[in-house]
Each structure stands twice: as C-alpha cells, then as structure tokens.
Amino acid sequence: MRISEVTAHSGVPATTLRYYEQLDLITSTRASNGYREYGPEVLERLSFISVAKKMNLDLEQIKWLLQVTATGTCTNTRDALHPVLADRLREVKDSIRRLEELKALLERSLEHVATCPDSSEPCQSECAFKALI
C-alpha cells in the first residue's frame, strides 16, 4: 500500500506515518519510483499504536511493546504487558484521586464564595480562599 492508502484505511496522517517510520514503529520499502510501500501488517501495528496511545503510553513504551509482540510468545507478551498496564492503572487512579480532591475543593470554594455578602467595601477575609484551607 502507498502512504495515501494507509492514511485512508487507518485515519493516521501521512506526516504521522513518516514520524512513526523514523522511530521504527512501522516500516516501509521504497518502490522504484521512490514511493513508500507498506505491507498489510502496518494497519495492525497502527491499530496497536492507537490503542496504546489511548492508554497514554509513550512512544518508547509502545516501540518496546511492539518489539515484544513481534518477537515473543503470547506468554512473553503477557508478562511484558501486565506490569506496564498495572503501572499505568496506578497512575490513572492517582490522577483520579487528585482530581476528586480538586473537585471537592472547588465545590467548597464555590459554596463559600456564593455566601459572600454584597458589599461595596474592600473584600474581607470571609471571601478569601485562605478561609477554606
């Protein structure tokens, strides 16, 4: 497949395909006219990359995982992938916890600010954030 066909089938822009090729995430050969030619396996690799990116894995991790899946058994792949996913899940849970704490602080702040009295005087401490800490 030419680069335009890969783009049409995968939705991945040609610039991204070239970048992935520079990083050795995908490969192509050169036709006699100089055009890149991709094998059918590139679509599967692009799908793998897409899912891994949705999990917020970085491109180095993705490259390593692609190498493991290409050269290893299912057992090796599972054993390599499991700790990566477990670490990522821990990171996401920590992010969710921090976001929940932020949400609670914002909700308290919003309630607090809503009760501030109308006044043409300079703001007193009862409306300041420091009252919430």
Rank of each mutant, 00 (worst) to 15 (best):
N76S: 11
T27S: 15
E107N: 12
S50Y: 02
K63W: 06
W64C: 07
F48H: 12
V51Y: 07
T69R: 15
P122F: 09
M55W: 15
T77K: 14
Q67F: 03
C116Q: 04
Y38C: 01
S32A: 15
C127M: 01
E101S: 03
D58C: 11
T75E: 13
S109E: 09
E44D: 12
L65K: 12
L89I: 11
T115W: 04
H112P: 01
P117Q: 05
A104L: 05
N76F: 03
R98K: 15
A114R: 09
A114L: 11
D118N: 04
G39C: 05
R78W: 05
S28W: 07
V51G: 00
S32P: 07
G39P: 07
R30Q: 11
S125I: 08
T29A: 08
R97A: 12
N76G: 10
S119V: 00
S32N: 09
N76Q: 15
Y35M: 13
P40M: 01
P117E: 09
G34F: 11
E41S: 10
R88S: 14
L43Y: 08
G34W: 13
L46E: 09
A86M: 08
P117K: 13
L99Y: 01
R98D: 12
R98F: 06
Y35T: 06
Q67W: 04
W64D: 06
V68T: 10
K53T: 13
E37D: 05
E91N: 07
R45E: 02
P40T: 11
R30W: 10
S28L: 02
S119W: 00
Q124K: 14
V42T: 10
Q124E: 13
V68H: 05
Y35C: 00
L106H: 01
D87P: 00
Q61L: 06
D87T: 14
G72A: 10
D58F: 06
L43E: 13
S47I: 03
A86S: 09
N76V: 00
L65F: 09
K93W: 03
V68Y: 10
K103Q: 15
A80T: 05
V51H: 08
S95G: 10
S50L: 04
A80S: 15
V84T: 07
S32W: 08
C74V: 12
N56F: 06
P117D: 04
L102S: 08
D118H: 11
E107T: 14
T75A: 11
I96W: 01
S32I: 03
L46C: 02
K103F: 04
A70H: 12
S95P: 00
S119L: 01
R36E: 05
R97Y: 04
A104E: 11
C127G: 13
D79V: 04
L57C: 03
L43N: 05
K63H: 15
V42F: 02
T77Y: 14
K103L: 01
N76I: 03
E44P: 00
V42Q: 12
E91G: 02
H82F: 11
C74Y: 04
